[in-house]
Design a binder for these strands. Structure first.
Lengths: 150, 150
DNA sequence: CCGTATCCATTCCGATACTG
DNA sequence: CAGTATCGGAATGGATACGG
């Protein structure tokens, strides 16, 4: 059998998310979509990904309800790919990856792109994991509660 | 050539993050590490991953400074794998994936594991992307500022 | 410009057997 | 228990050629 282990029936939400978007290209396609890319060629040039791979990823995203395929806005015969609400909900995921990368994958002073508040032109606040009443939580202050099949 | 395109020299922090943790198993290993797994066998049983794959992933994480290999706490001859500060900083990434999965990958009423505030036993607050002065930001209220090589 | 289709190399992954 | 080694099948990814 082989084929990759699937996590789409896993009880853990992290596993299901990974199943949906956890490969090399998927998250970067979503990033580009947030950045305004809509056309096949935009994704293709931005990412340098092979066209057949891009085709497959876009289809998976459309099937999964993360992107919607809509008629091109310029009236041409082609399609554009826009984030659905489900896709837009990935915003914190992308921001979390961006902030982690900024803090941990660049040498001091090494240039990198930044995500800015468009109105103020300033960098964003770091994401915080908070309790229901707003206390910042460290990992060890949380625990996973497993569900039983009952 | 061939071989996967690497993003470890990309100017985009998202790309570098994906390069470090963007495959099927890596994020789940990190999730388990947050959940308290430390031993080879714990990861192996929890994930059902082949041992050679797990070996390779653990090594990559140790090399990348995300996990540290330390002597086993029970005095046995083996190693344990614990999150470094860099690894702990992935907490918002895992939480973001978890929350997205909860909201978008389960049927209403379908059971799934939950991440709880250990002290209160309550679910966490949803992650929010905020401006420097604390305003919630939608994706279209942000923009990526590219750096120039100069 | 937008894809689809095909080809091929590489990598990934799972299973299993084996060592300490 | 904690890994290492090897094997084979599968999926991935890149290049290219082709058609709408």
């Amino acid at each position: 059998m082989v084929a990759r282990t699937r996590f789409d029936d896993n009880e853990c939400p992290v596993a299901r998310s990974v199943d949906a978007i956890g490969d090399w290209w998927s998250l970067l396609i979503v990033r580009d979509a947030f950045d305004g890319s809509r056309r096949f060629g935009e994704f293709q040039r931005s990412l340098g990904v092979a066209k057949n791979i891009l085709t497959a990823r876009l289809r998976t995203f459309v099937d999964g309800g993360i992107l919607a395929s809509v008629p091109a806005s310029d009236g041409s015969a082609y399609r554009e790919y826009v984030l659905t609400p489900k896709g837009e909900a990935l915003f914190p995921v992308i921001v979390a990856l961006r902030q982690w990368g900024e803090a941990n994958s660049f040498a001091p002073g090494e240039p990198h792109s930044e995500l800015l508040d468009r109105r103020e032109g300033r960098r964003l606040r770091g994401l915080e994991v908070l309790s229901a009443d707003g206390r910042p939580l460290r990992p060890d202050e949380t625990e996973v509660h497993k569900v039983s099949a009952g």
